[in-house]
């Protein structure tokens, strides 16, 4: 139990998707103009990551990994399909996003109205695929660890985008040098936020 919590905290603060690995920067920059839309996108990311990372974990564990197919019989135990992982992961993510979109639309129209437009955007968000690839690289032991990693990374991304959106709303009233306005100042702010987040590095888990 404690281990799950450690992975969760670690993936939110220390291995933050945006500040430590720059993942999902495209939508991070493009959708962070107001807090309201960024909350919507952030929630959609948490949601989709919480689902795709464990699903891809199971696929990796039982189909792709070297020797993973041994449950089919002894003659499959040397099969190594890991070179297919990119294409399988991206297919799972794209179809999961579609599926989630349909389910949400059917059962919770209110949630759909707030998340709906962001869901298609998410299929090509690097943070989602990055989550699955990191999960594969770090070799988590159980599906629960993978889930807590997925949720934690999603939440870290959520924090980052809401934070930058709040700052960008305020900075509109400041006198930024003209050439730095918009994109330039956003990068520098993200860098400064990243330095602030590095203070969490000291946490021993």
């Amino acid at each position: 139990m404690q281990e799950l919590f450690n992975i969760f905290i670690k993936s939110i603060f220390i291995d933050n998707m945006v500040f430590a690995y720059f993942l999902g920067m495209c939508s991070y920059i493009a959708v962070s103009k107001t807090v309201k839309t960024s909350v919507g996108l952030g929630m959609a990311v948490v949601f989709v990551m919480g689902i795709t990372v464990p699903v891809n974990y199971l696929i990796n564990e039982y189909i792709l990994k070297p020797g993973a197919l041994s449950w089919l019989g002894a003659q499959f135990k040397d099969v190594d399909l890991s070179f297919l992982s990119f294409i399988i992961f991206i297919a799972v993510i794209a179809s999961m996003v579609q599926l989630v979109e349909m389910i949400v639309e059917k059962f919770s129209p209110a949630l759909y109205a707030s998340l709906g437009i962001f869901l298609p955007l998410i299929a090509v968000n690097c943070a989602i695929l990055g989550g699955s690839l990191f999960m594969q690289e770090r070799d988590y032991q159980t599906v629960w660890q993978a889930t807590s990693f997925g949720l934690g990374s999603g939440l870290g991304w959520f924090l980052a985008i809401v934070g930058i959106a709040a700052i960008r709303e305020k900075i509109r009233y400041s006198n930024v040098p003209p050439a730095l306005r918009g994109l330039g100042i956003t990068f520098i702010l993200t860098g400064l936020m990243g330095i602030a987040f590095m203070s969490f590095l000291g946490i021993k888990l």
């Binding site: 500040f19 430590a20 690995y21 720059f22 040098p177 050439a179 730095l180 994109l183 330039g184 100042i185 956003t186 990068f187 520098i188 993200t190 860098g191 400064l192 936020m193 990243g194 330095i195 590095m198």
Partner: peptide, 14 residues
């Protein structure tokens, strides 16, 4: 450290 990449890019854009 990672944050400096962002700041360097910000300066390049500037």
């Amino acid at each position: 450290l990672p944050p400096m990449a962002l700041i360097t890019l910000g300066v390049i854009i500037w």
